[in-house]
Nucleic acid binder design. Structure first.
Lengths: 142, 142
DNA sequence: CCTAAATGTTCTAGTTGCTAGAGGTTCAAG
DNA sequence: CTTGAACCTCTAGCAACTAGAACATTTAGG
């Protein structure tokens, strides 16, 4: 039986985060000691590892909830899990495309900056004047 | 003199967002009508455009605050603006690298999924078993 | 057995960058 | 003068945690 701290260490998760997952129903309510402390077994280690791994792959918690659900029902079709993964892949590719455009623009800004004072700083000038941009970067928060 | 709505339209910003920027001190407190409504001039249009453009390039608001500060002081060295931009470029490149690793892993997961039921779904299996991963993807939230 | 340190507990609030809604006021056109 | 769009403030919500206060429990050493 593991304490919440050891569970966290085993899975690379902060204690607060484990409790957070419990709060939103991603992790089950574990057994408690007489004194009220949480104790975990192997099933919980597996489940939390699954969650963490999916997070590392960028899946949002709601997608992970679905994936866990599928994982709990081994007789259901694999198709749903596959489509969740495909959706995630699309997201990743979209974000990559955006970042590529941003990188281009940033590089150009920096490249053209020749020092001197801010009055004729290329970086600031580009920011002031959107029309100097070559690429589209319409989306915010890429 | 522009209303907050027209300012928003001109700069591609939601009204709420303009007020939010004012609240956190990125935008100055504008003049008001007798009835208490905000009115904006050209300077505000420029400033908000600057902010929005920097956001599109992924700069966090705190970096934008610094950039605006530099922009307001034309005699200061360009060096600082340049280093903020370089920092941002590094961030972008870091995120791209992470996304690249994620994409690789997701593609492999999906590629190996041959249908059937979830009991032997590759997607779920990979998530269950981190050791099946080829790439590093240690950082979360890439 | 006792004590101290480490770890656990709950609860609240903060992070980033907005966005949405309630409930009310002002403005401009007709 | 009336109507309806656009404005006002204030609060709360989003994702996915993270941090801190104030207190309880557990465990190891002496």
């Amino acid at each position: 039986m593991l304490t919440i701290g050891s569970l966290g260490k085993k899975t690379g998760t902060k204690v607060q985060t484990v409790r957070y997952y419990e709060q939103i129903g991603l992790m089950p309510e574990p057994g408690r000691t007489e004194g009220g402390q949480r104790r975990y077994g192997d099933a919980e280690v597996d489940r939390l590892s699954f969650i963490r791994h999916a997070r590392q792959l960028g899946f949002p918690l709601e997608a992970i909830r679905e994936l866990l659900d599928l994982s709990d029902n081994p007789d259901r079709s694999c198709h749903e899990a596959d489509s969740i993964a495909r959706r995630q892949l699309k997201q990743v590719e979209l974000r990559m495309d955006r970042l590529k455009a941003l990188r281009t623009e940033l590089k150009r800004m920096i490249h053209e900056c020749s020092g001197g004072n801010t009055a004729d700083c290329k970086v600031l000038e580009v920011l002031r004047n959107h029309s100097e941009c070559l690429t589209d970067h319409d989306e915010i928060g890429a």
